[in-house]
Simulated scan of single mutants.
Amino acid sequence: MKCLMSWSGGKDSALALYRCLNSPKYSIVGLVTTISSSTNRISMHGVALDVLKNQTDSIGLPLHVITLPEDCSMDAYESIMGVFMSNMKRDGIKGVVFGDIFLEDIRAYREKQMRGIGLIPIFPLWGLKSHDVANEFFANHFKSIITCVDGELLDESFVGQNYTSAYIEKLPDGVDPCGENGEFHSFVFAGPIFQRELEVKVVNTICREYPNPQGGNPKTFWFADIAISK
Rank of each mutant, 00 (worst) to 15 (best):
G216R: 08
L154R: 07
S130G: 15
D132Y: 12
K170Q: 04
E169R: 11
I122W: 09
I145D: 00
F158A: 04
I122Y: 10
F142P: 03
K219G: 02
F158D: 08
E169F: 05
Q161W: 12
G174R: 10
P211D: 04
D173Q: 06
H185D: 10
I145P: 02
E136M: 14
G216K: 04
V188E: 10
G215F: 02
P213W: 00
P124W: 15
H141G: 02
R208S: 07
V175G: 06
I146T: 05
N140T: 11
F184Q: 14
G127C: 12
P211A: 10
S157P: 06
G179K: 07
I206Q: 15
K219C: 03
A166Y: 09
E209S: 14
C148K: 00
G174I: 11
F142K: 01
A190R: 07
N204F: 10
Q195G: 12
E180M: 03
D173T: 07
V188H: 08
V203N: 11
K170M: 04
G118M: 02
R208A: 11
Y210V: 00
L119R: 09
F184D: 13
G191C: 08
I168C: 12
V133F: 10
P213K: 00
K201S: 11
L119Q: 03
I120S: 06
S130L: 11
R196H: 07
V175A: 03
C178S: 06
T147W: 14
G116W: 02
V159S: 04
I146K: 01
E136S: 14
I117D: 09
V133N: 04
A166L: 12
R208W: 04
F187L: 08
L153D: 02
I206P: 13
I193W: 04
I120Q: 09
G182H: 07
A139G: 02
D132H: 15
I120K: 05
Q161N: 14
G174V: 03
N135W: 06
F138H: 05
G215N: 06
P124A: 11
F138E: 03
E169K: 13
G216L: 05
I117H: 12
A190W: 09
P218R: 15
V175I: 10
E183S: 12
G179N: 00
G215H: 03
V203A: 10
R196C: 02
F142A: 01
V200G: 05
V202P: 11
G182I: 00
P218K: 14
T164R: 15
E136G: 10
W126T: 03
E209F: 07
Y163C: 03
I168E: 14
P192K: 10
E199I: 08
V133Y: 08
S144I: 04
F189R: 05
E199Y: 01
K201M: 09
I193T: 06
N181E: 04
F189Q: 01
V149A: 10
L171E: 01
I120N: 06
S165P: 06
Y163I: 13
D155H: 09
G215E: 06
I120L: 08
L198D: 05
G174S: 02
K219I: 08
V175S: 01
P172L: 01
R208Y: 07
E183A: 09
L198A: 05
P124F: 13
E209C: 05
E183Q: 08
L198Q: 03
A190E: 14
G216W: 04
G118P: 03
A139T: 12
P121G: 05
